[in-house]
């Protein structure tokens, strides 16, 4: 037992790197995939084509291949600039994960009926204002569970960064194994750490999904609940 505690202490250092890696990746992935998904539904054909091409291409490349390419290929160019393996891994993860999340976001954006776009257009709103004022506010909350699920994927995939010299928790565990020669025990502890990180996010995501599925409208989360005015007698 004492052994396990000492392992956890060692692994904690790596876990912090894992959390940092996942947090930065999540942040940039949300930004980039929002941009990609908007490009994919934009009225400008070339932009749409590029976004769809990017998503299709990126989703057919294994993440590990991208990580290795960035580390061994770009690494030579970026090392003199002081860009570490950590940031190369963030870049590869973001480029890859964004293609998946962008597809999810695109579906979410398309879930708004076309007539809402028309209603905005009939007021004279342009594309950008329609997106900002009418479309995004309607899908913002609906996008949260899928974003959380994507974060879970990012945390899991961040373990691949151990193969390109990022000293996150899986690499820390592998080093620990080489010292203790107890792979079964150490990797089990590692698995438990991942569970501890991911299960709460999964629970929140599922709870939210159920709330949204149960018809908690956007209005409820935007503003304090209104009394059911429809029940009042007509003025």
């Amino acid at each position: 037992m004492r052994e396990v505690i000492s392992w956890v202490a060692i692994l904690a250092g790596g876990l912090i790197v894992t959390i940092k890696l996942s947090a930065f990746t999540t942040l940039f992935t949300i930004a980039f995939s929002s941009l990609l998904s908007l490009c994919a539904i934009s009225p400008w054909r070339p932009l749409r084509f590029l976004a769809v091409l990017y998503n299709d291409l990126m989703r057919s490349i294994p993440l590990l291949a991208l990580l290795i390419f960035f580390y061994y290929g770009l690494g030579r160019l970026t090392a003199p600039l002081g860009i570490s393996a950590f940031w190369l891994a963030v870049a590869a993860l973001v480029l890859n994960e964004s293609a998946y999340l962008a597809e999810v976001y695109r579906g979410t954006l398309l879930s708004v009926p076309a007539t809402q776009w028309e209603a905005a257009a009939s007021l004279g709103l342009g594309w950008a204002s329609t997106v900002r004022l009418v479309i995004l506010p309607q899908v913002f909350v609906a996008g949260v569970p899928s974003t959380l699920n994507n974060t879970i994927g990012i945390i899991k995939n961040s373990s691949l960064a151990s193969l390109v010299a990022v000293n996150e928790v899986t690499l820390t565990a592998t080093i620990l194994v080489s010292e203790t020669f107890q792979p079964m025990q150490v990797y089990l502890v590692l698995a438990v750490l991942y569970l501890a990180l991911i299960v709460p996010i999964g629970l929140v995501s599922r709870r939210l999904e159920r709330l949204l599925g149960a018809g908690i409208g956007i209005g409820d989360l935007h503003e304090p609940a209104e009394p059911r005015l429809a029940a009042l007698p007509e003025a």
Partner: peptide, 13 residues
């Protein structure tokens, strides 16, 4: 323009 299905913006009062 007034639409058949109203098309109020559901996220706004």
């Amino acid at each position: 323009m007034v639409f058949q299905h109203f098309e109020l913006f559901p996220h706004l009062t």
